[in-house]
Design a binder for these strands. Structure first.
Length: 392
DNA sequence: AAGGAGGGCAACCGCATGTAC
DNA sequence: TGTACATGCGGTTGCCCTCCT
């Protein structure tokens, strides 16, 4: 029985023989793989296109790097996973020659165990609180590997965690071209993420995105996150930053984090606007800031009896989220980008100070970073709000 | 030496998304 | 606009090898 996509034909499954590999290689080098569904026929293989594609991508592609992962690669995986989570394809893009499958397998078979052995939740990279945490064999559901802390608890950890990570975290690998500058020249002492513990702020649960105000500092020399109160003018200005940008990004191709959607209507540059339901990224003369995003929660409606209370809280609270990136090159070009294809960094860097090519802007990174910095915390961020928590 | 358990890796499955018609 | 198909992705499974008893 083959895939449902190719149930019409009789296809072979299981391991590939050297002969099949040879046929596939010959076919693709000759014809390319414009349409995978036609590859089996062209190659004379009793496989479905999906299987051919997988075999090519994961094993036969000439640019694959075989062999075990280096410590540098391992560190990259951990760093990126901490930000992106199980987005293996995205993580693999930071490791030239590695496939998502390879990264995933390496994570499941090696890194995850290391983290667990050190008492870290491989999902959140935080210390696991529950002693009931247990690690099961990989054939069990991944969800059962860590403790049963639900997402809400994990989210709390993002905000109020002690600086527990034993792995150096360097966001530079994402803010900069990941084309192995990091791997080739790993920092001698990579900075550690330090999330300073503060008393939990009150969070209305159903506020679209609620940035903890003044309660965390992401202490990384390359990326400074600041939470800022609506009424606070305090911001972390940086020297040597470019002048005001006024360019509006045109489109986003990113995948929004589950449960949220970005609305583009307010994606403007250069002004700071606070909405009660969104976060704002701003650019001022001293700091480069992400495009203003209005992040609307796409979540089930709260129970009726809670709506009123939530509305009241929402009216009281708004947050301005400011991301200040102090990474500009000598020509004031924005370095906050991602070389997804592992291509020329210089090419990627060709951005003017007055125009911002949104295609180079790694919104996915930003999405995920936002998530990793506790922006989901609104779902269950404080004990006072626990009573309002949904099942999540 | 034999058999079971565990680990690593390749491949499959199902779903989401994109695209052409 | 709806549908079918292609592709991409993450989770899961199955096979094979190694280690341990």
């Amino acid at each position: 029985m083959g895939h449902h996509c190719c149930s019409k034909q009789k296809v072979k499954r299981g391991l590939w023989s050297p002969e099949e590999d040879e046929k596939l290689i010959r076919c693709i080098t000759t014809h390319g793989h414009g349409c995978w569904s036609s590859v089996p026929k062209l190659a004379g293989l009793q496989r479905c296109g999906k299987s051919c594609r997988l075999r090519w991508i994961n094993y036969l592609r000439p640019d694959l790097k075989r062999g075990s992962f280096s410590p540098q690669e391992e560190r990259v995986i951990i760093d990126v996973h901490r930000i992106l989570g199980n987005r293996w394809a995205q993580i693999a893009k930071h490791l030239p020659g590695r496939t998502d499958n390879e990264v995933k397998n390496f994570w499941n078979s090696c890194i995850k165990k290391k983290l667990i052995a050190q008492g870290l939740d491989p999902k959140t990279h935080n210390l696991m609180i529950s002693s009931s945490s247990s690690y099961h064999h990989h054939h069990q559901s991944t969800a059962s590997i860590v403790n049963n802390n639900n997402a809400c608890n994990n989210l709390n950890n993002h905000i109020y965690q002690q600086p527990t990570s034993v792995f150096p975290v360097n966001s530079q690998i994402i803010l900069r071209d990941p084309s192995m500058e990091y791997m080739m020249n790993p920092p001698a002492a990579a900075p550690y993420v330090t999330l300073l513990p503060h008393p939990p702020p009150p969070h209305p649960l159903h506020e679209a995105i609620s940035i903890p105000t003044n309660n965390f500092d992401y202490q990384n020399p390359n990326l400074v996150w600041t939470g800022k109160d609506q009424n606070s003018n305090a911001s972390m200005g940086l020297a040597n930053c470019p002048p005001l940008m006024e360019t509006k990004p045109t489109s986003y191709s990113s995948v929004n984090p589950p449960g949220f959607e970005f609305t583009e209507e307010n994606c403007l540059w250069g002004t700071t606007t606070t909405t009660s339901t969104g976060i704002s990224g701003t650019i001022d003369h001293q700091s480069f800031v992400l495009p203003r995003l209005q992040v609307a929660a796409v979540q089930p409606p709260p129970p009726p009896e809670e709506e009123q209370q939530i509305k009241q809280i929402q009216q009281k609270k708004a947050a301005v989220f400011e991301v200040v990136v102090d990474e500009f090159d000598e020509t004031n070009e924005v370095v906050l980008m991602n070389n997804k294809d592992g291509g020329s960094h210089d090419q990627e860097m060709e951005m003017s100070t007055t125009s911002f090519n949104s295609s180079n802007f790694d919104l996915e990174f930003m999405d995920s970073t936002i998530m990793s910095c506790g922006m989901y915390s609104n779902m269950n961020s404080s004990s006072s709000m626990d009573q309002l928590a949904w099942d999540c």
